[in-house]
Nucleic acid binder design. Structure first.
Length: 160
DNA sequence: GCCAACGTTGGC
DNA sequence: GCCAACGTTGGC
């Protein structure tokens, strides 16, 4: 199947692209997504080797910091059933059914300089991009191949 | 800090 | 099953 492209949001104060680079094996579980649409994408659509932009939100200048690859496809998010986790889902635990999924991601490419949201907005070819739409809160979003290539051209790639 | 947009919840 | 109220996200 053809490779797919994604955008995954994170607040860098919680977990940044640099944190991913520093993680063991440059890999981490992308836990804590508690939205059904995003879950469905991770459960059903993410493929091994797909590429994902890591997007920093909740900061003065939101940005795409780099590219990660999917290192493990969707599996049950263990943090949902862990009462000590901040991502604990008491309702799921009570029912004994964990509805939440996650994937593992590995840092692949760091942008020498992050591509900022205003740079994305200034790029005509990206006018239809989901993350630029007002109120687009989905934390895991599909990105088209054309959008992916355009953003790679905007960036200055460097191997991690 | 403000507030618009969105998803979820719960009363009816 | 509708929809108002609420909580959260996230840009600005």
């Amino acid at each position: 199947m053809a490779k797919k492209y994604w955008l995954m949001k994170t607040e860098p104060s919680v977990f940044s692209f640099e944190d991913l680079v520093k993680a063991p094996g440059k890999t981490t579980a992308w836990e804590g997504v508690r939205n059904y649409q995003a879950r469905n994408l991770m459960r059903d659509e993410f493929q091994l080797g797909d590429l994902a932009f890591i997007y920093h939100s909740g900061i003065a200048e939101p940005e795409i910091a780099g590219i990660a690859e999917i290192a493990k496809t969707g599996y049950a998010d263990p943090f949902a059933m862990d009462s000590k986790s901040k991502y604990y889902d008491a309702d799921a635990k009570k029912k004994g059914v964990n509805p939440w999924f996650l994937v593992d991601v590995r840092a692949k490419k760091r942008f020498k300089k992050s591509v900022t949201r205003s740079e994305l907005k200034n790029c005509k070819a990206l006018a239809g991009m989901m993350v630029l739409r007002k109120g687009a809160r989905l934390s895991v979003q599909p990105v088209t191949e054309a959008e992916f290539k355009t953003i790679c051209e905007l960036s200055d790639l460097e191997n991690v």
